[in-house]
Amino acid sequence: MSHTYILHSAILNKFYIGACHEDLEQRIENHNAGTYGAKSFTSITNDWVLFLKFDCDNYAHAIRLERKIKSMKSSVYIQNLTKYAELQDKIFNETKST
């Protein structure tokens, strides 16, 4: 299974949006450990926690969903995703392959 995930850092008060086709818990641990290099955005801090995740059927869908959320460029939109299940369903279904 693949995932699109949103992490939040309380220290930075920022979100990070990503996609993976591996163990999500391990992926978050890697972000917090700085495994992805000193130049990666998540290496700035080590307090990343899972804010929201989408379980996708395949990695291609996870990437499309990640890009769609990133294109919104809005922390308010990300917060609304947790408040309104219909918004989650809409964006999930919009990014499924046709």
Rank of each mutant, 00 (worst) to 15 (best):
M1Q: 09
M1F: 07
M1P: 00
M1L: 08
T4L: 09
T4C: 07
T4N: 01
Y5H: 05
Y5S: 09
Y5Q: 02
I6Y: 11
L7D: 00
H8Q: 10
H8I: 06
H8C: 11
S9H: 01
S9I: 15
A10E: 06
I11H: 14
L12V: 10
K14R: 03
F15A: 03
Y16H: 04
Y16W: 04
G18Q: 08
C20F: 03
E22N: 11
D23R: 13
D23K: 13
D23L: 04
E25G: 10
R27Q: 13
I28K: 04
E29Q: 14
H31G: 01
G34F: 13
G34W: 08
T35H: 07
T35M: 09
Y36K: 13
K39A: 14
K39Y: 13
S40R: 06
S40L: 07
S40I: 05
S40Q: 06
F41E: 00
S43N: 09
I44T: 10
D47R: 13
W48S: 03
V49N: 09
V49L: 10
L50K: 03
L50M: 04
L50H: 02
L50W: 02
F51S: 04
L52K: 04
K53L: 12
C56M: 12
D57A: 01
D57W: 10
D57S: 12
N58S: 11
A60W: 11
A62K: 05
A62C: 02
L65D: 06
L65S: 03
R67W: 02
R67V: 15
R67Q: 01
R67M: 10
K68Q: 06
K68M: 00
I69G: 02
K70L: 08
S71K: 01
M72Q: 03
S74K: 08
S75P: 00
I78K: 05
Q79R: 05
L81H: 04
Y84I: 15
Q88E: 10
Q88V: 14
D89F: 04
I91N: 06
F92V: 15
F92M: 12
E94V: 12
E94I: 12
T95G: 02
T98Q: 10
T98D: 12
